[in-house]
């Protein structure tokens, strides 16, 4: 049991447990906090996979910005566990069966395949320098187009949430 394996099991357990709590927590603010813990666990996995830049960007973007946005909306809408409606128990049962069979199908699909793992793969592909080189050479067009995407999203978000002050 190497230390890597122990860390992997711990992070996976944390990620799965907090993901389950996201779905099953009654208070929406608790759901948001459990999702933040899930994001930290996934960032830990990224570090284990030598993707340091992605781990840092994941924390900054997801846990640091997107979740703050969710918390803002929750606080503005003032949702508490008393006002939280639930689906009928039959629907919950059926959806658990559906999600379970989805998981079985996906895992079975991968079971017979042989994935060609390169045993001496270069760990430095996760570093900032090499990712930067690839991003600005092969993926320059998507990078520039994503700036237009952000402009559209910003304009959309500001315009959609304006109050009509008539």
């Amino acid at each position: 049991m190497s230390i890597t394996l122990i860390i992997f099991w711990f992070l996976s357990f944390l990620a799965l447990l907090s993901a389950a709590m996201v779905v099953f927590a009654k208070n929406p603010v608790h759901s948001v906090l459990y999702l933040i813990i899930t994001f930290f666990a996934i960032a830990g996995h990224y570090l284990l996979l030598s993707a340091q830049f992605l781990a840092a960007v994941h924390i900054i973007v997801y846990a640091g910005a997107i979740m703050v946005l969710f918390l803002y909306v929750l606080m503005m809408l003032n949702l508490n566990k008393e006002t939280e409606p639930h689906k009928k128990p039959l629907i919950k049962f059926i959806s658990i069966i559906a999600a379970g069979s989805l998981m079985l199908t996906l895992v079975a699909a991968f079971k017979g395949t042989e994935i060609a793992v390169v045993s001496n793969a270069d760990p430095s592909i996760g570093s900032v320098e090499s990712l930067g080189k690839v991003l600005f050479s092969e993926f320059l067009l998507p990078f520039e187009v994503s700036s237009i995407l952000f402009l559209a999203a910003m304009v959309g978000a500001v315009y959609l949430s304006k109050k009509d002050l008539n």
Binding site: A19, V22, K92, S95, I96, A98, A99, G100, L102, L106
Partner: peptide, 13 residues
């Protein structure tokens, strides 16, 4: 896959 299915479960539930 497990994380994906938990997410799908959440959307359905």
């Amino acid at each position: 896959t497990a994380l994906f299915c938990i997410g799908a479960l959440g959307v359905m539930t």
